[in-house]
Design a protein around this nucleic acid. Structure first.
Lengths: 306, 306
DNA sequence: CTTAAGCGATAGACAATACCTATTATAAAT
DNA sequence: ATTTATAATAGGTATTGTCTATCGCTTAAG
């Protein structure tokens, strides 16, 4: 059986005329006759009762043609669906981002994205780097926004921007009187960190020259599960911390006893990149998404030219 | 697009493995790969995201494969339906019969038919010869049981049996004392007839040598619309009539003042035949139906050997 | 009564394409 | 480093869908 054959019998049933049906199917009449004969033999039944003068559909033919119509409808639905999704921007894009980035970046780009690519729908998830990479491999998400370099098999990574770390310290802290903060200053203060698994925790440790062991001994009980909590702790005077620039766009500096200051250190930034499977077929959609991000960054962070 | 292609992508979606899918489809792996590539190009979308190590279905692929499954289901339903009807006896057979035959013949054969061919369902209709022939041409019925020879284009006719005409007369009639009834006797009595259109009316007139005109003058007001009515009239003494043998199988002789007697005339019978379109594809079913009729006739009528 | 026109079926040649074998390229496992 | 497993590619073969030309038949017209 064949989809063309089904179209043929449907058309014959409609026209009750082999010649006209053939013309409507853009084939010759012998072709149509032959294909229908073949189909009838394959099915073992007669679909049309024909004389030189008339063509009538048999009872069983009526039933079969009804089913054939449904089958053709399904295939046309397939073509419609495919056509609607030929635009790689169309349809949902499943994006995961790390928790120290997502709540600060997404508000910046969602509106511009909708304006620029209204047909592109996002499905967002917020998880830590390892989980995101696993979900990427499992095809559960299409891309991940990470702040750590990735070099895994089958994954590709495009850097979007460099996000500086700022120092957040309590107002009462002796930092308050310093003109600039040096790395030595950072080494000699109480640094609060995010709980384990957050890449930001490890990066902060690297910059402040803290070792894992040191950390465990000192303030394991003061690791926070979110940046918001962390800043609350800073405001309460428990210590200082490094904060990615985008996270400071809120009202932290003004009210709640937290002072945020730029760091004049070469390596006090993180590289935010979008990571996806090399085989992902809708990379154009990711490209568009990335472009919207880079076009809508505040001037505290600098987009990377690729 | 092609039904085979749809089967291919369904199988790949199930196995997530081109080689295994190819084996299950009984084709080589390159064939499967090529066909799927072709389909993806035709649809303009990627159905599977594949590496050397894994095959995963894309989001749009999932949707399309779901539709493909439905389409394949429809075609399998077509094959099932065709298979179920490959037995030409299967499915309903639309039979029309004339009113002077149907109510007397059908009770004789319905039970034997069900015993012999339980899968053969009858759809009966009861109309006069002309109507039946028209419906036959219109494909509204598949065969007609008639008592008149038919020689129309595209129709074929098989004689089933010869049904003798019996004479039905009132008990008080002078026929009652006669040993045998001759044709002259018939000419000289009041013959009651069925209303126009019934072939039995014309046949009775032929046998009794009545002309149309004669009939109109005499007893146009006494034509009956059914055999039952006609016999009621006979019982009431309004005249005599010719009755086909099968119609006398009831209890007419015993009670209601009607005497039925065989006629010893060469031409006092009618030929009952089954008529159908030459192109009708289920002639085997008609053959079976006809055989059941001939096997279950009472000994008052004689089957015709073909 | 002959001729012409319309219709579906048939025959044979051709061309598109589905299919196969053999091979390549690449990644994972030993 | 070698082997194994996988999908992709290349090139040749075979199937089969399609075409043109024609037949056989029926109906309509001259």
């Amino acid at each position: 059986m064949n989809l063309k054959d089904l179209k043929y019998i449907i058309t014959v049933a409609e026209t009750r005329h082999f010649g006209k049906a053939a013309a409507r199917c853009f084939v010759s009449q012998p072709t149509l006759s032959g294909q229908i004969k073949k189909l009838e033999q394959q099915l073992g039944i007669t679909l049309f009762e024909r004389t030189n003068r008339s063509v009538e559909v048999t009872a069983i033919g009526e039933q079969i043609i009804q089913l054939a119509r449904q089958a053709i409808d399904q295939t046309e639905a397939i073509e419609q669906l495919a056509l609607a999704h030929q635009d790689p921007l169309a349809g949902p894009l499943r994006i995961g981002a790390i928790p120290t980035l997502s709540p600060y970046l997404m508000p910046l780009i969602l509106m511009p994205l909708r304006r620029r690519h209204p047909q592109l729908k996002l499905v967002l998830s917020e998880e830590m780097t390892d989980t995101l990479l696993a979900r990427l491999h499992n095809h559960e998400i299409d891309a991940a926004l990470l702040a750590t370099p990735v070099d895994e098999d089958g994954l590709e990574s495009v850097t979007l921007f460099n996000e500086p770390f700022w120092l957040a310290h309590p107002r009462q802290h002796w930092f308050y009187n310093r003109e600039t903060i040096s790395r030595d200053d950072l080494d000699n203060t109480d640094m609060l960190l995010l709980s384990e698994g957050h890449c930001l925790a490890k990066q902060a440790m690297d910059i402040c020259h803290l070792s894992e062991r040191q950390q465990q001994g000192d303030m394991a009980d003061l690791r926070a599960s979110s940046l918001e909590t962390l800043l609350q702790l800073v405001g309460a005077g428990f210590g200082s911390t490094l904060v990615p620039a985008l996270a400071l766009r809120g009202s932290w500096t003004t009210d709640s006893g937290v002072i945020a200051r730029k760091l004049e250190l070469d390596d006090a930034y993180r590289q935010v990149s979008i990571v996806f499977r090399q085989t992902f077929p809708r990379q154009k959609a990711l490209q568009a998404f990335a472009q919207v991000i880079m076009d809508n960054l505040p001037n505290t962070v600098q987009a990377v030219k690729n």
